[in-house]
Amino acid sequence: MELYFLGTNAGVPSLQRNVTSIALRLLEERRSLWLFDCGEGTQHQILKSPLKLSKLEKVFITHMHGDHVFGLPGLLSSRGAQGVTAPLAIYGPPGIKSFIETSLTISQSRVPYTMDIIEHTGGVIFEDKYFRVEAAGLDHRADSYGYRVVEKDLPGSLDPKRLEAYGLKPGPQYGKLKRGESVELGDGSWIHPADVLLAPKKGRVVTILGDTRPCPGVEVLAKDADVLVHEATFMEDLAELAHEYYHSTAKQAAEAAVRGGVKSLFLTHFSSRYKDVEHLQPLLQEAKEVFEHTRLAEDFGLYPVQRST
């Protein structure tokens, strides 16, 4: 599980940063890619990255402002032009279905794959035996949502010492035990998975927020997350401006991380007034004074999501 930032600017692109889009690479977990928001130019960013549209399985849109959705019609069309036929699920607030269908219809774009467009107003929006995705409303000028991706706990690894004690050798029986099946020994006794498996591996939690002012929804989504991705459009000296435009400061993002008990925080969605990495350092310092484990997201930055031990 890895985060890959395709755009970290707010509002409009700059020479240094594109507008918002974040990929969650799940190549080991499900051989796929999930995309969060798709600002204008996202497909160009993907062309410059190691990401492949053929791996794209799901798209999650936080809200309908242009810097988060204007790249979506082109990306969907290009995915089809590349010959990808695998189905795609798109989740977003009310209006996302009309936006996609109207854009593709009027432009006569050919999409040779099934699209399942799911409009939601929060709650559990996806779940299978490996992952659950929850959404909650935030506080922005448009209906804005954050997403909490919960990886379910995985079975523990086989314990070589216990296996040896039972006289088990590598082979099909290992696979059965790993899958949660019991196996019968030659003497008629049974070995159950709990007899030879180590403790389960705790699943990871990644929270990715849309644009927002501080609000209860942030805390619900961020609680005990391994990673929180939070907008930091301004520094605290512009807190009144941030509030007026329904955004957050770097300090407010750090305070949310502290309240949520998260393990690491990524700041993103920076105002164009902070032109480059050097100009972003004061935002980082401001946040780190409140929450030490803070990093600046960078375009084309790849960040593994570590599993808690």
Rank of each mutant, 00 (worst) to 15 (best):
V262Q: 08
L88P: 06
G146V: 14
K169Q: 13
T20I: 14
V305S: 02
Q252D: 13
L177A: 12
F5Y: 03
K129S: 10
P216R: 15
P282L: 10
T294K: 00
E151N: 08
G39H: 04
L168C: 05
P94V: 07
T105Y: 01
S308A: 15
H293D: 10
S308E: 15
L302A: 13
E2F: 13
D67P: 02
G122I: 02
D116C: 06
S109M: 11
Q45Y: 05
T268Y: 12
D37A: 15
M235E: 03
D153G: 07
S272K: 10
R213T: 09
C38V: 14
P94I: 01
D139Q: 12
L24G: 07
V183H: 11
R79H: 04
E101N: 07
Y274M: 09
L75S: 06
L296P: 01
P214D: 02
I117D: 02
F126W: 06
T102L: 01
T309S: 14
K176C: 02
G156F: 08
D139R: 14
H140K: 12
V149N: 11
L6N: 09
K58E: 06
K223E: 12
G217P: 02
M64T: 00
V262W: 02
S248N: 06
C38N: 11
A135L: 15
H63R: 01
D116M: 09
V84M: 05
A242C: 08
G175A: 10
D143N: 10
C215S: 13
S157K: 13
N18Y: 06
L88A: 02
D224G: 04
K202A: 05
T207D: 00
R79G: 04
D276F: 05
V262N: 05
K251C: 01
R273L: 12
E236N: 14
M115D: 01
Q82S: 02
L265I: 09
Y246P: 02
